[in-house]
């Protein structure tokens, strides 16, 4: 018997792991710590205070941030809703549609946006919008977000659907449910956890997007990431750290929620046989 493979026995494993963790998380932790700094300087520690959090909500930039946050949230909710709907339809078509011509091509088309460098998508979208004369603004951001969120929503939804046996739908139809009723009362509830994780993933991706949004947002419209970037260009103030920390916490909450929904999905796996 050879010793079972264990990555921890490789030399240098511990050092490399530590280096990776530090590089990944040290900046985040420093930002979080300094968001509680009382000093106006971003490098000198002046005691613990919540003044920069107060500043985010009441300071001179607060109106700008509030508007940007509202834009971000409303766009993320709408983009995630629409893209999840489209992704659900796509998943059902791909997985339950039987064999059809161009199935592999369809799958490639759905997932390609994940592979394409974001800057390319951003430039292409900008060129496309200006060619067809689509006015840049909140609506153009929304359309672009819907499009690039679809593959992210598609992945967890199709993974869930793949694990669901077709016999549930057959049973529903056998019991006099129309196609729509079969989806509404049987397939959708069983797919539920997948649809919800797809929605949350799309929501985070939209909320977080900077590159594409920055290209197509048009003049005067800001989302939270572009507003933060705009402020940082004029010098980093500690209120950015507070804002970033808030955004980080919000994301962590959503990801955790998504994780627990996934867990519940695992405890309630798509029933097999």
């Amino acid at each position: 018997m050879t010793r079972p493979f264990d990555i921890r026995h490789y030399r240098g494993f511990f050092a490399v792991t530590c280096a990776c963790l530090v590089i990944l998380y040290a900046p985040l932790i420093i930002v979080m710590i300094y968001s509680f700094n009382d000093s106006a300087s971003i490098t000198n520690w002046g005691g613990v205070s919540l003044r920069w959090y107060v500043d985010v909500f009441t300071g001179p930039d607060s109106e700008k941030f509030k508007l940007a946050a509202w834009n971000s949230l409303s766009i993320a909710v709408m983009a995630a809703t629409v893209s999840t709907t489209i992704a659900t339809a796509a998943a059902i078509g791909m997985i339950r549609g039987g064999q059809f011509k161009g199935k592999s091509a369809s799958f490639a088309l759905i997932s390609l946006p994940i592979m394409v460098p974001e800057i390319v998508t951003a430039v292409a979208t900008l060129i496309f919008f200006s060619t067809i004369g689509f006015k840049l603004g909140t609506l153009s951001i929304l359309v672009a977000h819907i499009v690039f969120c679809i593959p992210f929503a598609y992945l967890p939804i199709s993974a869930r659907l793949q694990g669901i046996e077709a016999s549930f739908e057959e049973a529903a139809q056998d019991l006099y449910a129309s196609r729509w009723a079969t989806f509404r009362y049987v397939l959708m509830p069983i797919m539920g956890p997948g649809i919800l994780s797809g929605f949350l993933l799309a929501f985070i991706i939209s909320l977080d997007d900077f590159i594409i949004t920055n290209f197509i947002k048009g003049a005067g419209v800001e989302t939270l990431p572009t507003a933060i970037f705009g402020s940082v260009k004029q010098g980093i103030k500690p209120n950015i750290m507070a804002l970033s920390t808030l955004l980080l916490m919000f994301s962590i909450c959503l990801v955790t929620l998504s994780y627990f929904i996934g867990k519940r999905g695992e405890a309630n796996p798509p029933p097999q046989t």
């Binding site: 046996e165 016999s167 549930f168 529903a172 056998d174 049987v186 069983i190 029933p271």
Partner: peptide, 18 residues
């Protein structure tokens, strides 16, 4: 199937889990 007055007991039962 939803227009045929016949019903099926499936091999794996296919009871709706929710």
């Amino acid at each position: 199937p939803d227009k045929r007055p016949v019903n099926t007991v499936f091999q794996n039962y296919a009871l709706f889990p929710h």
